Simulated assay, not measured.
Amino acid sequence: MIIDLPNTSTAALNKRLVKLRENAGLPMIGRVLTLIVVTNEVVGSESAIRSANNASREHPCRVIVVIRGNRAAANRLDAQIRVGGDAGASEVIVLRTSGGLTTQGAALATPLLLPDTPVAAWWPRNSPTNLAADRIGQLCQRRITDSDAEGHPTDALAKRASGYSPGDTDLAWARITPWRALMTSLLDQPPYEKITAATVGGPESAGSIDLACGWLAARLGIDVRRAVGKQMVVLERKSGNIVIEGINSRTVEVRITGQEPMRAPLPDRSVAECLAEDLRRMDSDEIYAEALTGLDRVIHSSSSDR
């Protein structure tokens, strides 16, 4: 069910929500958090809403979508309430703003926050430099960005590193969770030798690849080469290399010196899957913070090694 409230106010919106609960039995019990999505029409608000709805099946929540429209237009708030099949396991409140209201997202969202539950914010693109200092970011325990979706992921990660605060995270970080788990499991096997060099390859504009480099640099205490080309990881050690190479979007091949190659399922992760992972915790992700500091030890080059 979708209810449109053109040219409205947050007070009128709240009254309509109360009426829905009374007349239609709109559920409140079971909502575990509030997710604020900050976007604009150019980015594609419907795509962000679909991802939030899918993530809500794991984390039933209230989703507040703040869409920043034309600042030069007259002040106006057009709202929409989505429940039932149009909202996944959540209830979605869409706030389309224009004029001076485009800068008042935090004030508009505050009256709509669920009481006594954590608050998370997600910027699908065009995130602020300092998330914790942003007015919406100040409302939240968890602040989520996506450096892979930015025009210049490397610059976006530099921005995240310079303005990091506990609670910040990145969907690009969640995208490499299976890769990090695989690398960790391979290194947790004999002969337990020190890794002397590491190379991570992948598309040039991929913040997730940069973060993988930063993570390895921080955990291994070495410089890591960031190559452009096939998605792969090469870890060098005295007894021979460990190579993990993407064969397609769902499978990787692992080659270890002296052993037969093997293949493992490692499918690409959707935005919704990454968002659901980031909503599982509201505390500080110290390993992500270490990966950001490790970016200083990443050496960029033009092509990947085989």
Rank of each mutant, 00 (worst) to 15 (best):
297 R>M: 10
7 N>A: 12
231 Q>S: 13
10 T>E: 09
218 A>K: 07
235 L>G: 04
79 A>K: 10
270 S>R: 11
244 I>Q: 02
81 I>Q: 04
72 A>T: 11
185 S>Y: 00
226 R>T: 06
94 V>T: 15
293 T>W: 03
165 S>E: 12
89 A>N: 11
172 A>K: 03
95 L>K: 10
104 Q>W: 01
72 A>F: 11
281 R>M: 05
81 I>C: 04
194 K>W: 01
76 R>P: 02
1 M>H: 14
16 R>A: 12
90 S>D: 15
31 R>Y: 11
170 D>H: 05
226 R>M: 07
1 M>W: 03
127 S>V: 00
121 A>K: 05
89 A>C: 07
281 R>V: 08
182 L>Q: 11
264 A>S: 08
4 D>P: 00
100 G>H: 06
58 E>S: 12
302 S>Y: 10
86 D>K: 09
176 I>Q: 12
66 V>L: 15
205 S>E: 08
180 R>Q: 12
44 G>I: 09
56 S>Y: 03
283 D>V: 04
225 R>Q: 12
142 R>A: 11
164 Y>W: 15
57 R>E: 09
141 Q>M: 09
201 G>W: 09
254 V>D: 05
92 V>Y: 03
257 T>N: 08
199 T>G: 05
274 C>V: 03
182 L>F: 04
284 S>V: 07
248 N>K: 02
79 A>M: 11
57 R>Y: 06
150 E>P: 04
119 V>E: 11
132 A>P: 00
28 M>H: 15
3 I>N: 01
190 P>R: 01
109 A>L: 08
306 R>D: 10
271 V>L: 07
248 N>M: 03
180 R>P: 07
109 A>W: 08
266 L>V: 14
172 A>D: 03
227 A>K: 03
46 E>P: 00
158 A>S: 06
195 I>Y: 02
256 I>S: 02
222 I>A: 08
233 V>D: 01
239 S>R: 02
5 L>C: 07
181 A>P: 00
20 L>G: 13
173 W>A: 02
87 A>L: 07
176 I>P: 01
69 G>V: 07
92 V>L: 05
279 L>N: 06
153 P>T: 02
95 L>E: 06
282 M>T: 14
127 S>W: 00
274 C>Q: 14
176 I>S: 09
107 A>S: 14
179 W>F: 07
54 N>C: 02
279 L>R: 09
54 N>E: 14
289 A>Q: 15
286 E>F: 06
103 T>E: 15
300 H>I: 10
83 V>K: 01
76 R>G: 04
80 Q>N: 04
115 P>S: 09
277 E>W: 04
158 A>E: 08
67 I>F: 02
162 S>R: 04
260 E>W: 00
130 N>Q: 12
280 R>S: 15
86 D>T: 09
248 N>P: 03
11 A>R: 09
260 E>Y: 00
273 E>C: 03
54 N>D: 14
297 R>I: 00
34 T>H: 08
304 S>I: 11
189 Q>G: 00
250 R>D: 15
238 K>S: 08
236 E>R: 13
25 G>E: 12
50 R>Y: 02
38 V>Q: 10
70 N>S: 12
19 K>G: 06
139 L>Y: 04
156 A>M: 04
184 T>L: 12
251 T>K: 12
53 N>Q: 13
163 G>M: 01
153 P>S: 04
282 M>W: 04
271 V>Y: 05
46 E>A: 15
15 K>Y: 02
196 T>E: 11
80 Q>I: 01
29 I>N: 13
133 A>M: 08
2 I>V: 13
223 D>S: 12
167 G>C: 10
